[in-house]
Design a binder for these strands. Structure first.
Lengths: 191, 191
DNA sequence: CACGGCTAGCTAACGACACTAGCTTTAAGG
DNA sequence: CCTTAAAGCTAGTGTCGTTAGCTAGCCGTG
């Protein structure tokens, strides 16, 4: 019996890809083992439990997402940064729905959980992006939460196939980002 | 052995309440049977499978949510209707997180699925609410999707405990609704 | 009031799943 | 070449969803 040469990182990567293929909720140790050409119990040499595996997928997803947003918003500001960042996040979720689902399903175990750090990097990107709008410091947290809410909501609704007429979802997305952008730009002009 | 007097409706109601208590993902046939004072296999006299049960919870949730939003927006228009409807949805989700999670996890089986009708009633309420803003018909679908996206995103993020500093989540919610309201009211004033 | 059929609820059992125990064998390092 | 950590295996356990088949409570009819 030749060795398969597995590592925790490889197991995580393959399970993330499998989750993207069949859906995070359908992921099982048996299917993962089959895809890796190995029997189920062998996985426990690299991963302590399914919860541990899910956690690793979540960290991977949040890290990749943070990188994607950072790369997209790099060198841009204001409207440009918002549009580029939002599209980057949306396309990441469309391409990796299983990973993203894992990222939202898993709860951090504590303050020093790498998942917290990864999620913090995503938030930091949005926060940096908002600086371009010169928002009143007291309103920054609310604007940040709104951006996060909108993008998360759109991503999950679309990943779940919840938009009936999905022909012009792209148009709706653009419209929505434009709506938010316009609102942010005119935040200080309110009477 | 005296009979418990179960019905599909009662089983659904109790399972929904249980899901709200322990979380939708933690719901199991065994726990439900225990709460009903019955052995697990007895449930299958009233419900064909766990998938069937989840579907019934989802229909119940969407129906209740549609009623709550309709009642809250009744007799109101524009900003008032948006604020009242949004708060009604938010408080429903806070009060019944398990039900709402079921409503989002379950896929409709077909076009005549009662779940589709219930979800349609929710959408109809948002649509009626938007009429008060006199939005250009070509943009209505986008505005509708945005409202849905924002409320769904906020509800799920908060239900998952994803807002770190949850002290002023209520303030953020109000701020966000106000932001959306302002944007909708000035939609026609864009240059 | 008796009785017959429907069915709610039960026990027993199966398959799928996550996981553990313990063995064998691989392969890396002295 | 030989020792040793560990990768992968087989076998087995507990839990969960689900089915089969029996028993007994309830409702309608005679």
């Amino acid at each position: 019996m030749p060795r398969a040469g597995l590592t925790p990182a490889l197991v995580t990567e393959v399970s993330a890809a499998l989750a993207d293929d069949i859906g995070f909720s359908q992921l099982s140790m048996g299917l993962l083992a089959e895809r890796l050409g190995v029997k189920t119990p062998s996985l426990y040499k690299h991963v302590t439990s399914q919860a541990d595996l899910n956690h690793r997928i979540a960290v991977l997803a949040m890290t990749e997402l943070a990188d994607a947003i950072r790369d997209a918003t790099q060198g841009r500001a204001g409207s440009d940064a918002l549009i580029a960042g939002a599209r980057a996040m949306w396309s990441y979720v469309k391409e990796h729905p299983g990973r993203y689902a894992a990222g939202n399903a898993v709860r951090p175990t504590g303050p020093d959980d790498p998942l917290v750090a990864a999620a913090g990097r995503v938030l930091a990107s949005w926060s940096a992006m908002l600086h371009g709008y010169r928002i009143d410091p007291g309103q920054e947290i609310h604007a940040l939460r709104m951006v996060r809410t909108v993008l998360h909501g759109f991503a999950t609704l679309e990943a779940a196939g919840n938009f009936r007429i999905d022909a012009d979802v792209d148009v709706s997305f653009t419209w929505m980002i434009d709506f938010i952008d316009h609102g942010l730009r005119t935040l200080n002009d309110r009477h």
